[in-house]
Structures are given as structure tokens and as C-alpha cells.
């Protein structure tokens, strides 16, 4: 899959601001970014649901703008919403979506059966989807995109709001599919998922790819920097100035009563931090030290936390 200079704006807002990305056959690439970074818009542009203002997308050699049907036939899209018919049963849903991908007859029947088995819904295939639990719907939501054995599978936040077991199952399917040669583009804002699954990770912010590489490459951007988080309480606002000049501190940002610092050797820095805090009369409620991770990368690149809704 090739994306070149892709751009899309909605009136005042530039949702996708010149993205270039190439995904090799059989690769699993995650799109990581906070809400509103442009992930879903990018997916819509790739599937040809939206028309790009500029740039080009090619899927398995088919330009989406010129041969949308051929491109879509190579794609399997798992939308973020449960896009299924609640008043039809699982089997009817799969048969319908299979037909939309051009399957028919015996092959359609066979694939439907296989996928019902795969997502563990064969036993309840005659029940209306409206009666399913959230996890069951999520699994079926994925199955509906797999019927035609797509060369490229795009999943948009497929694990939002479900129980850990279903989440595990979904991650396993994705890895399995990728292992058998399916190219996967996986959108998420859970960095753990991105780290676990991906060959490469693209970090998106404000419609741009701000970093692209393997997990190792990305964390290397931050170098050997550890991340130190200090819980300060109310007086955090001006506290960043107090620590910025400490030796070994590369970056300080404050928000919500918290101070985030990137430092070369976090463990060695801690005594100095506490000393400075005591000196300036800043009360530290707790301190956390972390090894380099994607969160730190994002913080490093944007100065903001990846997620505000930290669990």
C-alpha cells in the first residue's frame, strides 16, 4: 500500500495534512495517535469513502481514485462502530457482507461457516445481532471484513470498550491473519497494542505522521531517556521552571497537577529532583519512573501526553 502526499480538509480543519506512508505486503503497521489525530479520516481516504483534496492512495497496485472498486475488493475494513444489522442474525449479516464483496454460492457459504467458527459464534449464528454482548458484536464486526480474504485488512480501533478476554482474542486473530500473509493497518490509541502487534508504528498527530519506524527505532528517538512523572497537586502550574535546569533533564511539561520529565538517567536524577522540590517548597505526592516507551516518544515529539484518558 502506498500513500503519497495525502491531504484532506473539512472547512477550517485540516484532518489529514500531507501524509506519505508505504506498507509492504505482509507487514503489520499500527497507526497510533490521540483522538482527533486524523486516523479515521486516513482510513476513510484509503477505502475511498472520502475523496482526498490532494495526494494519492494505491492499494495492491490499484489507485483508489481511479479504480475504487478494484482497490476496495483488495481491502477489508473493520469500522470503529459496530456496523452490522442488529435485526438480522450473525449468519445473515455475514452472507450479506460477503455478497457485497462479490462472493456467492458455495464459496460464500463455506467462508461464512469458517468465520463463524473462527470468531466463536457458530453456536449463536441464528440469533439476532441485537441480542449479542459488546464483545460478540466486535468479533462479528471483524469477521464481516474477512469473508473475501482481503489482501489488506484495516482495523479502526477494534478493541474499544470491551472486556480483556475479547480483546485478547481479537489481538490473536490479527496476529494470526498477519502471520498467514495479510497486510494489516491497525489503528489504535492503546500504545501497548501497537507495541505488541506491529512491525512498524506510525505516530499521527494533527494530520501528520510525526514518526514512523519499528518499536525499537521509535523508542531510540528518545534515546536512553527515561520518563519521570511527579504528582504535585495544585501548585504544579509553574513548577516546571524549577526543574528545567537540572543536569540530565531534557524536557519538562506540566498538566493536570502532573509534571512529566524526560531524563537521561532517571534513577540517578531522582535524589536531585526531590532535593530541588524541597528547596523550592514543592510538595511531591508521588513519583514514577519509566523506561523509554511510545508514550515517551509522543511526549518527546509533541510535548503532550498521548492520552488524557489514562487508565
Amino acid at each position: 500500500m502506498r500513500i503519497v502526499g495525502l491531504r484532506k480538509r473539512y472547512r477550517e480543519v485540516v484532518a489529514v495534512d500531507g501524509i506519505d506512508l508505504e506498507v509492504a505486503v505482509g507487514e503489520l503497521v499500527s497507526l497510533l495517535g490521540p483522538n482527533g489525530a486524523g486516523k479515521s479520516t486516513l482510513m476513510d481516504l484509503i477505502a475511498g469513502v472520502l475523496r482526498a483534496d490532494a495526494g494519492e492512495v494505491e492499494v495492491m497496485g490499484h489507485a483508489v481514485a481511479r479504480q475504487p472498486m478494484a482497490a476496495r475488493a483488495a481491502l477489508g475494513v473493520v469500522p470503529q462502530d459496530i456496523a452490522l444489522y442488529p435485526d438480522l442474525n450473525a449468519r445473515e449479516n455475514l452472507l450479506f457482507w460477503g455478497r457485497m464483496y462479490g462472493l456467492r454460492g458455495e464459496r460464500l457459504e463455506r467462508r461464512t461457516g469458517e468465520l463463524l467458527d473462527l470468531v466463536g459464534l457458530a453456536g449463536r449464528q441464528r440469533d439476532r445481532v441485537g441480542t449479542y454482548s459488546g464483545g460478540m458484536k466486535r468479533r462479528l464486526n471483524i469477521a464481516a471484513a474477512l469473508l473475501h480474504r482481503p489482501a489488506v485488512l484495516m482495523l479502526d480501533e477494534p478493541t474499544v470498550g470491551i472486556d480483556p478476554q475479547s480483546r485478547r482474542a481479537i489481538l490473536d486473530y490479527v496476529q494470526e491473519l498477519n502471520a498467514t500473509g495479510t497486510t494489516v493497518l491497525y489503528t489504535t490509541h492503546y500504545m501497548e497494542e501497537a507495541a505488541e502487534l506491529s512491525d512498524r508504528i506510525a505516530i499521527l498527530d494533527r494530520g501528520r505522521v510525526i514518526a514512523l519506524g519499528t518499536h525499537r527505532e521509535l523508542t531510540a528517538i528518545v534515546g536512553e531517556h527515561d520518563r519521570v512523572t511527579l504528582e504535585l497537586g495544585d501548585d504544579a502550574a509553574d513548577a516546571d521552571a524549577a526543574f528545567v535546569d537540572l543536569p540530565g533533564v531534557h524536557h519538562v511539561s506540566a498538566h493536570d497537577g502532573r509534571l512529566e520529565l524526560l531524563a537521561s538517567h532517571g534513577a540517578r536524577l531522582l535524589p536531585a529532583l526531590f532535593a530541588r522540590a524541597a528547596e523550592r517548597g514543592i510538595a511531591v505526592r508521588s513519583a514514577t519512573l519509566r523506561q523509554p516507551d511510545l508514550e515517551s516518544v509522543f511526549l518527546h515529539l509533541t510535548g503532550r501526553a498521548l492520552r488524557d484518558d489514562r487508565a
Binding site: A47, A70, V77, P79, I82, A83, L84, P86, M100
Partner: peptide
């Protein structure tokens, strides 16, 4: 509202 309309747009259906 169900999202199926958009999903249909991702399939090779004119």
C-alpha cells in the same frame, strides 16, 4: 446511524 451505510461504502459496491 448504524454505521452500515459507511461500511457499505468500503466494499467494492458502486
Amino acid at each position: 446511524e448504524e454505521g452500515t451505510l459507511k461500511r457499505l461504502a468500503t466494499t467494492p459496491t458502486t
